[in-house]
Design a protein around this nucleic acid. Sequence first.
DNA 1: AGATAGAGGTGGTCTGACCACTTATACTCA
DNA 2: TGAGTATAAGTGGTCAGACCACCTCTATCT
Lengths: 219, 219
Amino acid sequence: MQKPKPPSKMFLDIVGELKSIIKEEGIITGGKLPSERELAERLQAGRSTIREALRSLELLGLIETRRGEGTFLADFKKHQLVEVLAAFIMQQPDSISDVQKTRRIHEKAAIVSVCKDSALHTLPVWESLLAKIELDGEILREDVIREMIVATGNRLSLKIWFLLKQYSKVPFDKMTGVSEKDIVKSLLENLHQGTEEKTLEAYSEWIELVEGERGEKEE
Amino acid sequence: MQKPKPPSKMFLDIVGELKSIIKEEGIITGGKLPSERELAERLQAGRSTIREALRSLELLGLIETRRGEGTFLADFKKHQLVEVLAAFIMQQPDSISDVQKTRRIHEKAAIVSVCKDSALHTLPVWESLLAKIELDGEILREDVIREMIVATGNRLSLKIWFLLKQYSKVPFDKMTGVSEKDIVKSLLENLHQGTEEKTLEAYSEWIELVEGERGEKEE
DNA sequence: AGATAGAGGTGGTCTGACCACTTATACTCA
DNA sequence: TGAGTATAAGTGGTCAGACCACCTCTATCT
């Protein structure tokens, strides 16, 4: 019962193989991958198939290709996929809400984590943010959240959050009215004090405000 | 100063073109896209180039291809990109502890979510699990957690958790002693009652037990 | 009418061939 | 000798054609 070609998705196998090669050869960020022709021979596949796998990874922003030079393991900063996804996906309400919920899971967890650790909630960064709001208000919504997750030291959570943030085209730009500033100020003050309950309260208020803000013009 | 081929990323243009075609032709979820050969002719490109763009979109879970039938616009429920991203993100072993922490973030969030919704914590599945433990005890640790996340209905969180579970080589096998069974029983009972505090308490106990179990032989 | 064999369309893959570009090498000439 | 320049090799980018395996529909045969 030998099946020469059981499923169809061979290029997915290639993606897996590539992962192995990267791991085995210890290719680091910015390092060079074997050439397409070499990969084709090594993996017993045509160059087209190799390329299909590579293009996928490129769109994900995982690799970077430079003509005449080669293929390189990229840093997760370009995230080209976000644009494409945003363009394609924004019609699926189910998924969108999942993305938002999941994002908030990470945000709330960060708040709790910071509040529970006195070494974290006494960080000077909160006062610094507070001061900026008081002065010119030139501060982005995502800055506040990001700093909280950064403070937890969980880089994986930060990465996931970063991805989710970009998916959910939430208005992560500058803060709008006075009421929002007050809420964020309350959030930061309570965070600084480590009063978990009130911080989460302020966070919930904030979420409702931002969500309501965009809910009026859409749908 | 005419540049016949200014950039290199032609397949990215194809991705954009595809978006336009989908929009203009009003192709809905599950609908059929033009064949590769037709697209090649229409977009003045080789079939290989078309395929590279299509494979990218397939990896993102945006389209679905079926041999002998055609290419179809998929719904955004697969989240295939998560697997690939995770596989590569994990490549950089930030630290196992990050993975564990993040996994627990999702688990705790699920507990809270279930407890806060009476329609969720009154689900019969909790009693069912409880009964199984009482009888033969042939129940996996991950079953309990998984059911909780499933109950929340957040499929993205479930997917992420599943990935994290695989990476954090935690003993997710059968439960060990009597004490563990008691803890899980307490967890399920409180979950069923919707008593958030006590459920989280039981969860923390559980975590400590399991962590301590493996902490003796490692590090 | 039903079952069957065929043709056509589709994605999956491979091969070979160019092109454009980068890099490294070897060569030439002052 | 040294600097500059031609050349070659290697790389990704693209295309064309050819098979294969699979699905569907149709026309034919019983």
